[in-house]
């Protein structure tokens, strides 16, 4: 009995030793030479491999940072999810200056909720915006608006996007959003835009992408931008941030000072703001005839 146990132990021990030797030799022989700094920088990065930096995952970004540091300048590289804090830490590690990235957030440019743009048809297919986009214009008839199947929610690596069942639209959680841009790529209608969070989180944007004629746009959605130009008129006197093209206004976020004066003048409530906009001035009666 003892002999059997002893024998088993010896045989298994020998087998283990042989395999360990093989593994050791292979590990040494085929070891990949890697700059130790890459590993250390990777540690400093968020480690979520989102690709928002433009490199394949965090190790890719770390390798790029090490390369750039050897060249003496890393200011052109940025890690959007890590934010300024991460970049500062990496800058200290290399002893180099880092660029100052503006804090940004993903913004949905559609206000076509169930209430504002009621459904006129019923979609019968896979729950995928990409498939629905190829199927038809949308349940509410708007060929530019949100399809509501939540491809953005699925693709967001940070759980920052949730579909609101009441409005049928996605909502972005500013705290969780890292501007990685996954939703921008996933949305078949290109409804997301990465915009600066703005001073004190104040930002204003046109909540619509519809370039159809005003009549056609209003047919499907009560909050569609009809390109009337009232907002532009308002803004022209302040910072000239608004342009209008193809029946659709656009607010240049670099020029916009988030005064919010354009919000109340919009006849279709197509301008969204993250704050309570100023009350319209009694001058409203003057602007209206000018627009028509």
């Amino acid at each position: 009995m003892t002999q059997t146990i002893l024998f088993s132990v010896l045989v298994l021990g020998a087998v283990a030793a042989i395999f360990a030797t093989i593994l050791y030799v292979i590990a040494k022989k085929f070891a990949v030479e890697e700059d130790p700094r890459v590993g250390e920088v990777t540690e400093m990065l968020p480690g979520i491999n989102c690709g928002a930096c433009g490199f394949p995952g965090c190790p890719g970004m770390a390798a790029a940072l090490v390369d750039a540091a050897d060249g003496g300048d890393i200011s052109h590289l940025n890690c959007p999810p890590g934010g300024q804090e991460t970049m500062t830490r990496i800058g200290e590690y290399f002893g180099l200056e880092v660029g100052s990235a503006k804090e940004t957030v993903a913004v949905l440019r559609c206000g076509g909720s169930c209430e504002k743009a009621p459904a006129k048809a019923s979609y019968d297919g896979p729950r995928s915006c990409a498939v629905a986009h190829g199927t038809f214009a949308g349940e509410n008839g708007c060929a530019f608006g949100c399809l509501g199947h939540g491809d953005c929610e699925v693709v967001c690596p940070f759980d920052a996007i949730t579909m609101n069942p009441d409005t049928g639209l996605p909502e972005v959680d500013q705290e969780k959003c890292t501007s990685c841009g996954a939703c921008v790529d996933a949305c078949p209608r290109n409804l997301f835009e990465i915009r600066p969070v703005g001073r004190r989180d104040r930002r204003v944007w046109i909540n619509c992408r519809n370039t159809e004629s005003p009549v056609a746009a209003k047919k499907n959605c009560s909050v569609a931008c009809i390109g009337c130009g009232l907002c532009k008129k308002t803004c022209d006197g302040i910072v000239q941030a608004i342009t209008i093209e193809n029946n659709l206004a656009y607010i240049d976020h670099d020029k916009c000072i988030a005064c919010g004066k354009c919000v109340p003048v919009c006849p279709t409530n197509a301008i969204a703001a993250t704050f309570e906009p100023p009350k319209p001035k009694p001058k409203k009666t003057e602007t209206e005839p000018a627009a028509t």
Binding site: T135, F136, A137, G138, G141, A143, E212, S213, A216
Partner: peptide, 11 residues
């Protein structure tokens, strides 16, 4: 000269 919806609802 206008737009009209096609079979898929696109103008």
């Amino acid at each position: 000269i206008d737009t009209v919806v096609d079979a898929q609802g696109y103008r």
